[in-house]
Amino acid sequence: MPDSVLSLQHVTLSLRGNAGMVKILHGIDLEVAAGETLGLVGPSGSGKSSLLMIMGGLERATTGQVTALGQELTMMDEDALARFRRDNMGVVFQRFHLIPTMTALENVATPLELAGERDAFDRARGMLDKVGLAHRGDHYPAQMSGGEQQRVALARALAPRPRILLADEPTGNLDGANGQAITDLLFELSQAHGATLVLVTHAPELAALCDRTVRLRDGLIATAAAVEAAE
């Protein structure tokens, strides 16, 4: 695939469980193009979230090769992977993963500070404004609703202007109205920043917004189908 920013070749994943080693992924081959929006769909336990974590270097493939932006993640140690994610990736987790002892503003500014950005707090304020939470900058996660926390998490992921954005069930814990708001922001802001977006979802309406969907079943890619973007 031309201009591929993510490439997985013969990727497998096995994890140790109570009954011994469990094979999660069974030889995944996948290419994701620059600027593409890709939905990972399939039943619970099919390996969607594990595949997303491997793409982000948050889980190591047991075998196979994972390449992002021309860099082979499978050859990097943990420090190199952390630096690569800091400089190139944003991750939106289903359960937000905000730092509870930090305000919304501090949560969004943290990855910018780690990257050495001098205007970290100014950029963080700007991102909070884009997600409609400029007035909540001094509030802690426990003082915010689930929808507000997810918007802070989205602002944090996008503030460093990553080239790759990974989202794991970004609307899974939200009601209909908040879920729609996060969906709109996710696509609007990733497009504005020119990020390649890969998301895991059970929601057909969210998957339908993607340029392409890949369906997983029992750790294998069952189908890869192009879908029309919503009008």
Rank of each mutant, 00 (worst) to 15 (best):
L206D: 01
Q191R: 15
V198G: 02
A142K: 03
R217F: 09
A181I: 03
R118H: 09
I221G: 12
P111E: 05
A155F: 04
G126I: 04
E205C: 00
G179Y: 13
N173S: 14
D218N: 11
L209Y: 04
A177Q: 10
T196Q: 05
R156D: 14
G132R: 08
A109L: 07
Y140R: 06
L220Y: 11
N107R: 00
R212F: 06
A109N: 05
D122K: 14
A157I: 09
P162C: 09
R215I: 05
E113M: 09
L197H: 09
P141L: 05
E117D: 14
A222H: 15
C210D: 04
R212D: 00
G132P: 07
H193D: 14
L199Q: 13
A159K: 07
H202G: 07
R217D: 08
R215A: 15
L199W: 08
T103D: 01
V108G: 05
N178T: 12
D218E: 15
L114V: 11
T171V: 03
Q149M: 15
D129R: 12
N173V: 03
A192M: 11
H135T: 09
M102Y: 13
S190M: 11
A120T: 01
G146W: 00
A104G: 02
P100Q: 02
N178K: 03
A167L: 02
A155L: 06
I164T: 03
P170D: 12
R212N: 00
P162E: 07
A134L: 07
L154Y: 07
A195I: 12
E169L: 10
A207M: 08
R212A: 00
H202R: 12
R156W: 12
F121K: 11
E148N: 03
A208N: 09
R156F: 05
L165T: 12
R136I: 01
D119K: 00
V200C: 09
A203M: 03
V198M: 10
G137M: 10
A222Q: 15
G172I: 05
T103S: 14
L206N: 06
D184A: 12
E169H: 11
E117P: 00
L216F: 10
M127R: 04
T171S: 06
H202D: 05
P170T: 13
S145C: 08
E148C: 03
E113P: 00
L216T: 13
E148W: 14
D211R: 14
D211L: 14
A155K: 07
R125M: 07
L209G: 03
T101I: 01
T183A: 15
R136W: 06
V198L: 11
E106F: 13
D122P: 02
L105S: 02
L186M: 15
R163D: 10
A134K: 08
D184S: 09
D211P: 10
V214T: 14
L185I: 13
R151G: 00
P170V: 14
A120E: 04
T201N: 05
G219R: 03
F121S: 02
E148D: 02
D184Y: 03
R151Y: 04
Q191N: 15
G172K: 12
G172R: 14
R118D: 08
S145M: 05
T183R: 15
